[in-house]
Design a protein around this nucleic acid. Sequence first.
DNA 1: GCACCTAAACTGGTCCAACCAGTTGACGGG
DNA 2: CCCGTCAACTGGTTGGACCAGTTTAGGTGC
Lengths: 250, 250
Amino acid sequence: MSRATLLRMTFVPAPRASVSDHVFGQLRDAIVAGRHRPDETLPGERELAAAFAVNRHAVREALRRLQQLGLVRVSQGGATRVLDWRVHAGLDLALSLARSGDVLPVETLVRDMLEMRACVGVDAARLCAERADTDVVAALVHAAEEYGTLAPDLDRMAEANIRIWRLVVLGSGNTAYQLAFNSLVAGTFAVGDVPPDARAAELLDVAGHRRLAAAVASGQGAAAARHARALLTAPVTTPTTPTPGREARA
Amino acid sequence: MSRATLLRMTFVPAPRASVSDHVFGQLRDAIVAGRHRPDETLPGERELAAAFAVNRHAVREALRRLQQLGLVRVSQGGATRVLDWRVHAGLDLALSLARSGDVLPVETLVRDMLEMRACVGVDAARLCAERADTDVVAALVHAAEEYGTLAPDLDRMAEANIRIWRLVVLGSGNTAYQLAFNSLVAGTFAVGDVPPDARAAELLDVAGHRRLAAAVASGQGAAAARHARALLTAPVTTPTTPTPGREARA
DNA sequence: GCACCTAAACTGGTCCAACCAGTTGACGGG
DNA sequence: CCCGTCAACTGGTTGGACCAGTTTAGGTGC
């Protein structure tokens, strides 16, 4: 473990958020928390700039990002309106929410993401077995073998685990799965390494991962799905005890 | 049908994309299409501004959106680097891709999104049956009843269908499912109303939707999942013949 | 009195020009 | 050869001006 990593366990990197990041975060939290109701008109850009004591351009950049996230709808000439994020926001909002902390209860959010990971992972495993490239299959088998060598080191196993599943979703040939997987990985990552104890059983099941890889390699979709389910549903059924909620990362 | 709607079947609304929208779209397509490789440094903001013949602020707004989407990583002082969207982009990119048209093969993208819809929808139905609020259940039952009255009008049925599934994911209590559902709906919407023929069987199966609602209402998770699967997997197994690809919408 | 049309007062969109704040790399002294 | 220094990048921020739509209040005609 590097000296920097060691230190990071004690200290927290200084949050160097840019001005527009700050505005973005404030507005996002205000909207998600419901302090701005859907269909409500947001204050004008000039007014917001004055309120945040920043230049109007910074506000505009923040608003663009909110628009990209599906939290607001801006229209030239008319006012900027707040959208109902439960209807218009995409999965990327989950990442943003996880970063921001306690706007939404973190433990529920983690449970939801793990649930979705299980759901998508199982189907991705099935598809991967059915239509994966030989290169991807080879890489997966190799990754599963290497996975065992990391044996008791949970941190490194977690990383290797992500590599394995990334190969699975890649092999599934489903771009939507791949993108959703990215959202989920980034989300659980941002929330602070998930409950390690709840996932320990899953991570330490080296044989289970090998079985999954073998099933994919032999093209047995149903078996692959079964092994994937065995690995992924454990942390969901086991009630999670979330970590204190570490600070967000870059 | 309104006169405007009638006309829209012949003509296409003039694309009034803002300057930064234009820059955003160009850069996004260039990155997704691979014209800018991952880890490559993007030209400087001033240079891009000159190339697009726009102001630097417009470029900055576009870059912010790209960053939000996970396509680039910008760092003060250093250059803006292109990220591997297959690793760093979230599900929201699917929407953006669908809008932009033929950067990625549209038919594959639609298939992927339908596949994911099936996967998530089935599990959401199960969870909805297990832990849905009584209000949501009532609304779902009502929506399923109303659904039948729209009988042969596929357009209105498609809308009502979205309402039904929105209630299901809402009732599942899983925020991630809800957000992913939004991404998928917006994505398939943007690509131009999906293949109507492939979904016709699903949409016209009024009894199937009623069965789903009934299973949810009686709290039978397994049955709800089964009925959901029956509804959702049909369009996936049936090869899709995508529509010519209508223009993107606002 | 009511419907309509115009115009001023909003809104966001774009541009210019300057300067601040980090990063990078080349250059020169140790 | 290594290392500190500084100049030349990079993105970040600011101010102000003006353009381009939308909204609304007010006036005009019926």
